[in-house]
Amino acid sequence: MAVLKTILYLLVYPGLLFLFVYGTFCEWFDRKVYARLQNRMGPTHTGRWGLLQPVADFFKLMAKEDIVPDAADKPLFTLLPIVGLAVVATAGLLMPLWNPFPEAAGLISFQGDIIVLLYLLSLPTLIAFLAGWSSTNIFSQIGGTRVLTMLFGYEVPLFMAVLSPAILANSWRIAEIGAFYRARPLLLLPNVIGFVVALICVQAKLERTPFDIPHAETEIVGGTFTEYSGKKLAFFRLMTDIELVVSSGLIAAIFLGGFGGSPILAFLQFVVKTLAVIFLLSLIRALTSRIRVDQVVAFAWKTMAPLAVLQLLIVIIIKGLLK
């Protein structure tokens, strides 16, 4: 019975099915907000208010012809989308959501899960690089190198910004950090700088404007995913959607006080807080133009990293004062 429950946990809630449904919903929300900010309509006709548009896109892509370039490394080329999806779905399991099966709790919530989550979120970047490199297309390769170049920029500020609330809460467990801040909501205020830094770095991690450099369509066509089509591209798109859910969930759990209370209340908090984070991400997307990769690295090290260090300092001082 426990095995069955674990399987249900992995596949239905909060595993693949939930992540698929919520991921596509978040994509719809992002697209709709982005469109309305630009005075457009956004998805309108597939389902009520176009809610099913991302799902329709996904299934349409699944039905499309799947082309593997002759020169590409076939096993790697085929494996990468599946691995990518698996990685972000695993990261999704680490979210401190309402857990209907307490016996599986030890598996997904433990001291140090925040570090595991951060590393699982770094993997899609590497997968994007490998995808670009293994497809042997010149545009994909440029995209791949840009992915890595950007990674060196935003990863360090992101880690510092995300870990500073953890230092204040004195815990490496996401659920405990959330609980700590729910008990003392005023302590969320010193983390504002870290919140902004983390938001911008997540934007870079998700490769959205102004950091959509690895797949800047007007420069290098499809970037890393130029050669991908059909099912594989559908998997990559789903991967991006789930990554959006997981990273916005991470920010919500750490900087916005997590999700507590009764199960339904916790779930509602999760939805509201992640959507708030996604709204901010969409706003950044609508607000900026794409910058160059050298500008990203300069920006990350000259502005983001000092701000993250400042955040760490503030947190350490406050922690000293609290004692």
């Binding site: 900010l37 630009q38 005075n39 102004p210 609508a286 133009s289 794409r290």
Partner: peptide, 16 residues
Amino acid sequence: AGHEAGFDSFFMYTWR
């Protein structure tokens, strides 16, 4: 120009 620079909001507003 906005679109080529990846500034799609500018693109949408000018074209509107």
